[in-house]
């Protein structure tokens, strides 16, 4: 934790997204990210290989201090690839930022993102969940076991290709390939 973080926390009212976007402009340029806007937050599209540096900057620079990973959501776009959405929050400044990391489709060799566990302890279970639900590999995660699904069940249900019903799920069978047929 930086020195500023040891000061007592003062919860400030939410800073308008426009001001945050202004402040983020330089950072976005530095990391090859593009600024955008969702219906609720500022969005920052960043490639996977720059994610770790970006997050470190956002966490440590006193103008941002994003010290809380509030949410992490994977999204599958089918053939177009996948994406991971991180929502970061700064307790000191009271603003929220969404980071979008585009990813290649499932089963692509480069479908991996650096893990954020070293910055946020909260990322542990979020990443485990995304890993089992989407088959995304998180580099540097200490323990990428299944969390919600059974340990020997290697399916990725939240992929759009995964059927809702009537999947023949082979589970716990040692010989055959684990996974599903459809």
């Amino acid at each position: 934790m930086s020195k500023a973080a040891s000061l007592p926390y003062v919860v400030t009212p939410q800073i308008p997204n426009a001001r945050l976007a202004d402040a983020l402009g330089a950072v976005a340029a530095q990391f090859g990210a593009t600024l955008g806007q969702t219906k609720s937050d500022v969005n920052l599209d960043v490639p996977a290989d720059r994610l770790r540096d970006l997050v470190r900057t956002l966490k440590e620079r006193s103008a941002f201090q994003f010290d809380y990973l509030r949410n992490m959501a994977g999204v599958d776009f089918g053939e177009e690839g996948m994406a991971i959405k991180y929502q970061l929050y700064s307790f000191r400044h009271g603003h929220t930022l969404q980071i979008t990391v585009p990813l290649p489709p499932h089963n692509h060799p480069h479908a991996s993102v650096p893990s954020l566990v070293e910055f946020y302890g909260a990322a542990d279970w979020h990443e485990r969940e995304a890993a089992e639900m989407f088959g995304i590999h998180f580099e540097g995660h200490p323990n990428l076991k299944n969390l919600l699904l059974e340990e020997d069940l290697h399916i990725h249900p939240l992929l759009k290709a995964h059927p809702l019903q009537k999947a023949e799920i082979k589970q716990g069978i040692e010989d055959g390939p684990a996974g599903f047929n459809f």
Partner: peptide, 10 residues
């Protein structure tokens, strides 16, 4: 502590 709780996402 507050810092720890925030880091853990509590």
């Amino acid at each position: 502590s507050t810092e720890e709780a925030i880091g853990l996402g509590i």
